[in-house]
């Protein structure tokens, strides 16, 4: 091969490598400095997840559930000594697992006894198209029927998780028929509320607050100054609650 062709090949290779490496560095730089600084958090989360699969509460510094209560629906005594903030996705199977599993015992042993106040906040994940309409519908139900209507629809959604619609128009019809008897009297207003995404900002605020609190997936729980991630067994929640009660 002539020297000219060899030089051309070398130049082409250098240009190729330079472009790719520069683009990579730019991409990673944007992740670090322009993407909300998520890379370090994701690396840390990844390392923790690989090294330590655990059902124990994870200690995260500077997190207090009281700071993330906002004005969302809650159950239990408003003055309960321990606050739990649950960030949940209505289409997430693990959130359903919690609702069908540990929640019942949590409610009977801690919420109904006045020890815990549970606040439910939305954390719809982008790959769950039916989560946002469900969140909007629940907020619209709460508008007319209060927290009681909210949690009745919450239970209904998780009980019928496999059939909740992802389209807003379909969702408005679907949930309008579901909320009859849940304290929602004006279904026309309810449907308009869902279709117009009246509580979009509220749901987005829940999402942002969850991210700020360090929630990386659903369900995620702030229990006092602790965080429990995932649909853990009741014992994991009990341990965290007892530690908070002892303070």
């Amino acid at each position: 091969m002539s020297k000219l062709k060899k030089d051309q090949g070398l130049i082409a290779a250098i240009i190729f490598a330079s472009v790719v490496v520069s683009a990579s560095l730019t991409f990673f730089g944007m992740q670090l400095y322009g993407g909300g600084g998520n890379l370090e958090e994701k690396i840390q989360d990844g390392i923790e997840a690989y090294v330590q699969k655990q059902a124990q509460p994870q200690q995260r510094p500077s997190v207090n559930a009281e700071d993330f209560v906002d004005d969302d629906a809650f159950m239990g005594d408003a003055n309960a000594p321990v606050t739990i903030v649950e960030f949940s996705d209505f289409q997430c199977p693990f959130c359903k697992r919690f609702a069908d599993g540990a929640f019942a015992q949590l409610k009977s042993e801690y919420i109904d006894t006045g020890k815990v106040k549970l606040v439910f906040r939305d954390f719809p994940l982008s790959f769950h198209p039916a989560a946002l309409p469900a969140s909007l519908a629940a907020e619209c139900a709460r508008e007319q029927g209060g927290d009681e209507a909210y949690f009745k629809l919450h239970d209904y959604i998780f009980a019928n998780q496999d059939s909740i619609p992802g389209n807003l128009t379909e969702a408005s019809e679907y949930y309008a028929s579901a909320v009859k008897g849940m304290g929602v009297k004006d279904t026309a207003t309810f449907k308009a509320c869902v279709i117009d995404q009246k509580y979009q900002a509220e749901v987005e605020k829940d999402l942002q607050d969850g991210q700020e609190a360090g929630i990386s997936g659903t369900p995620g729980f702030l229990i006092g100054e602790q965080m429990v991630e995932g649909a853990q067994p009741f014992e994991a929640f009990a341990q965290a609650i007892e530690q908070e009660l002892a303070k």
């Binding site: 290779a13 190729f16 490598a17 472009v19 790719v20 490496v21 683009a23 990579s24 991409f27 994701k42 997840a49 699969k53 655990q54 059902a55 996705d89 997430c92 199977p93 693990f94 959130c95 697992r97 994940l125 982008s126 790959f127 769950h128 990386s216 997936g217 659903t218 369900p219 995620g220 991630e229 995932g230 649909a231 853990q232």
Partner: peptide, 28 residues
């Protein structure tokens, strides 16, 4: 060098954007 970076960038994008589950929760 270029191909290594290119392949890893694609793999990184897939790793960080694909939905999945970890520790009994749904995560991106």
């Amino acid at each position: 060098l270029g191909v290594t970076f290119l392949m890893f960038d694609l793999a990184y994008y897939v790793m960080t954007t694909l939905p999945g589950s970890r520790n009994e929760m749904c995560v991106i």
